[in-house]
């Protein structure tokens, strides 16, 4: 066992497109999915374990995920309970900055966080999308997510009728 890092050995993961990434055990354990895997290997397995293959995460996304878990390995906020209750309100400025990315990357990040079971990262990224929806009109939301207007003329009429009813003075 390495004397310099007695409790935090190196671990490797491989993305779906074959790129290998190195990180530490403590960071990677933030992922519930990988934590389960490692627990099943048993005693003494971690050092001799080969690279962990992650079929559902591509290299670009995995890079982002690793950046995030390495930053948060010692200080994870908010707690899982707070996320469950949706009471967490505080966003770390680092995270705020970290999430500045285009929607496609954000989608991939959400999918990865979901697959890897990293609740805090999933919380941050889904919340980010929710913030984008907030205070937008239906048309704005459509163009934001590139959604096609799939209403039939009858439905539009029905919705309009409903709106008319809604906007009654």
């Amino acid at each position: 066992m390495d004397i310099d890092r007695p409790s935090d050995p190196q671990v490797s993961v491989v993305s779906s497109d074959g790129t290998m990434f190195h990180t530490t055990l403590k960071s990677i354990l933030l992922s519930g999915t990988i934590k389960d895997m490692i627990e099943h290997i048993g005693e003494g397995g971690v050092e001799n374990m080969g690279a962990i293959p992650l079929q559902n995460v591509d290299s670009k996304t995995l890079e982002i995920v690793i950046k995030w878990i390495e930053h948060h390995k010692d200080n994870i906020q908010p707690t899982s309970e707070e996320i469950k209750d949706k009471t967490a309100d505080f966003i770390d400025p680092w995270d705020e900055n970290f999430l500045e990315m285009d929607l496609d990357k954000l989608y991939n990040l959400i999918t990865a966080a979901n697959y890897l079971n990293i609740p805090q990262l999933l919380w941050l990224s889904t919340r980010k999308i929710a913030m984008l929806i907030k205070n937008r009109t239906p048309q704005e939301i459509r163009s934001l997510f590139n959604i096609e207007d799939d209403w039939t003329p009858q439905e539009i009429e029905a919705v309009q009728k409903e709106n008319q009813w809604c906007e009654e003075k």
Binding site: R142, I147, W151
Partner: peptide, 8 residues
């Protein structure tokens, strides 16, 4: 507003 965006 979301209910008026799309069918889905």
């Amino acid at each position: 507003n979301l209910t008026r965006v799309s069918r889905k």
